[in-house]
Amino acid sequence: MEYKVTTPLSDEFIEKLHAGDRLLISGIIYTGRDAAHKRLVALVDKGEPLPIDVKGQIIYFVGPTPAKPGEVIGSAGPTTSGRMDAYSPKLLDLGLKGMIGKGSRNDAVKEALKRNKAVYLGATGGAGALLSQRITAAKVVAYEDLGPEAIRELEVKDFPVVVINDMYGGDLYVEGRKQYERGVDS
């Protein structure tokens, strides 16, 4: 299935999604990768408020190249999501509804998607120039000192992703690979 959706994401919408569905996302999404996640989760552990409200939101695992004069943002494709596995469940438990990245997630994240009604979405890795065209505005909203790893608020228009992990335990990486795996005569 293909859906057009505007953030924030509702439970009703997420219930419709299955691994392999394609989405075109519009609205506000937030960026964050290793260093920002480490700080966010340190705040969660101390019971302190976060610099962004993650409820219903999507975090895009990306550290863009610097924007040239006149550009909204530089190249902006997804980074490998597995490095955020240690942090994501705590943010999902706070109401985060979606994550965009590339590469496999661990069982703890998949369990957190199930119990919180959330999804993990894949964008095409290495297509940073192409994906940046779907970003219409960008501003740093936290941790400016982290440079490329700062948290940015992005405004996106029809940002293309595919559902990798849905809230029912579906995993597109596992299912897609199984379909094309074959024996080799040796």
């Binding site: 190249s75 494709g77 095409t124 290495g126 297509a127 940073g128 120039a129 192409l130």
Partner: peptide, 20 residues
């Protein structure tokens, strides 16, 4: 998409990938 990305990067002088 990767072909299109390569062409776009070349035409607009934008890095192919954010991880340079």
């Amino acid at each position: 998409q990767l072909l299109e990305n390569a062409k776009l990067a070349r035409d607009t002088n934008m890095p192919l990938c954010q991880d340079t």
